[in-house]
Design a protein around this nucleic acid. Sequence first.
RNA 1: GCUGGAGUAGCUCAGUUGGCAGAGCACGUCCUUGGUAAGGACGGGGUCACGAGUUCAAUUCUCGUCUCCAGCUCCA
Length: 587
Amino acid sequence: MNLDVLRHSCSHVMAEAVKELWPQTKLAIGPAIEDGFYYDFDKQAPFTDADLLAIEKIMQKIIARDDPFLREELDKIKAIGLFKKLNEDYKVQLIEALPNQAISIYKTGKVFLDLCRGPHIKSTGQIKAFKLLSVAGAYWHGIETNPMLQRIYGTCFETQKELDEYLKNLEEVKLRDHRKLGPALEFFDIYHEEAGAGLVFYHPKGALLRTIIEDYEKKEHLKRGYDMVITPHIMDVGLWKTSGHYDYYRENMYFLNIGDDKPAKNIGGPAQNRGGEFVLRPMNCPGHILIYKSKTRSYKDLPIRLFELGTVYRREKAGVLHGLLRVRGFTQDDAHIFCLPEQLSQEIKAIIDFVFDTMKVFGFDTVGIELSTRPEKSIGSDEDWQRATEALEAALKEKGLKYDVNVGDGAFYGPKIDIKLKDALKRTWQCATIQCDFALPKRFNLAYIDDAGKERQPIMLHRVLLGSLERFIGALIEHYKGELPLWLSPTQVLLIPIKETVLVYAQGVKTKLESHNIRVDMDLRNETLDKKIRNAEINKIPYCLILGDREVKQQQVSVRKKGSGDQGAVVLEEFIGNLINQIQEHK
RNA sequence: GCUGGAGUAGCUCAGUUGGCAGAGCACGUCCUUGGUAAGGACGGGGUCACGAGUUCAAUUCUCGUCUCCAGCUCCA
């Protein structure tokens, strides 16, 4: 049986139940979605949890009746008349938007009918396992200015067992929630009320994790021919007028009304682009562009790859903020590559490789590549957009990668490739993006001198690998359920001395581990061994070393591995050797 | 920004039909010196999100604000 058909049919049954309980309710649409189905209703009073239970009960009744799904076809005029009579305004709108041809409707039971393309299951009795999950607001047709409807989400499976597994998986998702795990593991917190929503505070362990990630990235970028730069967090508004952000991104920018008396020097763009006011940067590009422009560049210098762990601030709408995934201040692993046209394809392919390699090191599979094209609100000529889009597409094709095209979803200055990663629960996360840009080089009058001594315009690539470190750390926490691999764990080894008499020995072990750059903590509290072990497990520390009289006497350490318990005693050097191997292999 | 739900100790949550605010964990002190997931006793900790209003009295009722949660819209 086709699961989408089953779910779609289930949404019809739900709509029938809602109409039975509240006959005045108007129906909008009710499709199957990835994990279930929904139906949008126009009803005055909000649906409550109790209402959902009542609806489920009626649905059970309809399913027990085993009503057949019957298809009928009408011409458009008749269909409009029928749904007008039923007072189903939204259905009338839907039919009016359809081409002038036969309109199909489906009937179930004696009274319920719905505009529907189909197909459906034979009869309601084929629904074996379903559950209504939640209710939420949703705009009619998804357009903000339209009336808001009430959407009931539900899911449906062929068997109860599959439904139970799905519900169990939902619980699993909750357990992995980085918004709970992150503060619990003392990685980060957000002081919504005191400091502001969407602003992240890294506590010592989280800051250490981030430093480990940053160090890895710096090393890897230097290895791959990037230069590191550091640019200011506030810059004159004139720069943002020239870049186009002032016109195309203003509602997301923070302005600092106190500026300098003297307007900034105008670079590129019209003369009115003089500032005197400052902007907290929402992006890093203008800073990198200034560095590119700082001297005359030869074609022999290109490509120039400027990398910065750049913190940016964006004024996101309050309702979209979500843990570390959507914040107002975040740090991108951002680079801008200035290159010759003939270098473009090679650079894009190198970035794609870089993304794949990086994801693998952090333990993710990459999936889902999307190519996004020119949006309505954008700068640059059609010709440039076409060249940029073709360049990205060609690179994907040359690498033999599958991708979807997302029409109109590009940045305002250029088309982009998004690479999504897949976590342990098979959820996807938007992290890496590669954007091809002919527009900003033009606006800022970027140039290089070609082999004939003529001034030419370089092409600019914007790209991030992990995207925002905040979002990526959120993904890491959920992917690993907080149990980070050894090489990323803020505390790699916890020393547990059993009693005070072994403290001298324990201190010696600690010093030795630290001399190998192993991150080690010692639990000196006056607690039982059991308690300290429990604590280490809860804090998801990869290794514990238990140190008592026995270990001192034999000059060994007793190893306990998270999740697999007592590993027995070994000499310290053996343990260290083993650990270093694992760390080097990014395990 | 929109629709709905919510905000009580650091955390997880009780509770008050309007009348002195509660537990477990965590934290502190003391006892206990232990062998692989919670040893014991005692103790500190709260403008019940914030601001108005109603009332003899508001954590509780009303209104507003902020924030969170589930979505919509938007996005790294």
